[in-house]
């Protein structure tokens, strides 16, 4: 399983691979990933690669990722080339018309990609007082909501509960469920 997680510096994308890594290791699987630290973290484009299984290198080859998680729709669209044919993507969408772009639709259809969008900012604005730092866990919930990522929502809940700092635990779990519920309708 190969994941590519993209967003903007400061969105907390590193926590996402920590959660996925925690789950993989508790299943006894090997993990390998690559993160961005330093200047790019200052609001610029950031990308995390994460691989579960018998891999040696931390980077995902373009055209071979199973899942793209994008905290920012622009970054998501820019990085769709990482996906293999038939792969899935989940994008935090602030302008839903983008997904209707005919070229984008054709690209996705040609490669049998399924691209799902979730209005993450809107949800966090309405339900969590605009605390956008919960975007990372919301996206993990959304990932399970579209049945992607090869992990169950219970595994995500358990890992987030374990890794989130005590005082933010309840809010983190709430955001996971908001992301999940957006697709599972509850």
């Amino acid at each position: 399983m190969q994941y590519v997680i993209v967003g903007l510096g400061g969105q907390g994308i590193l926590f996402t691979s920590r959660v996925l890594g925690h789950i993989a290791v508790s299943r006894g699987e090997r993990v390998m990933g690559s993160e961005v630290h330093g200047m790019a973290q200052r609001g610029g484009s950031v990308i995390s690669h994460f691989k579960v299984g018998p891999y040696e290198s931390p980077l995902v080859l373009a055209g071979s990722a199973d899942l793209l998680i994008a905290f920012d729709q622009g970054e998501g669209i820019r990085n769709l080339h990482f996906l293999r044919e038939g792969a899935q993507a989940i994008l935090n969408i602030h302008d839903p018309t983008a997904l209707e772009n005919p070229h984008l639709k054709k690209y996705a259809a040609d490669r049998s990609l399924s691209i799902a969008g979730i209005p993450g900012y809107k949800i966090l604005h309405e339900k969590m007082g605009g605390r956008f730092l919960f975007m990372n866990v919301l996206m993990l919930g959304a990932m399970c909501g579209i049945n992607a990522g090869n992990v169950s929502i219970d595994e995500i809940r358990e890992a987030v509960a374990k890794l989130a700092p005590e005082k933010h635990r309840a809010d983190n779990l709430k955001a996971v469920d908001l992301g999940y519920g957006y697709f599972k309708g509850n």
């Binding site: 903007l8 609001g43 610029g44 484009s45 622009g74 970054e75 669209i77 820019r78 070229h103 984008l104």
Partner: peptide
């Protein structure tokens, strides 16, 4: 699509 949607990499900012 990237061109039409004007998606560009975001450089770092303060």
């Amino acid at each position: 699509a990237i061109e039409e949607l004007k998606v560009t990499p975001k450089p770092p900012m303060l």
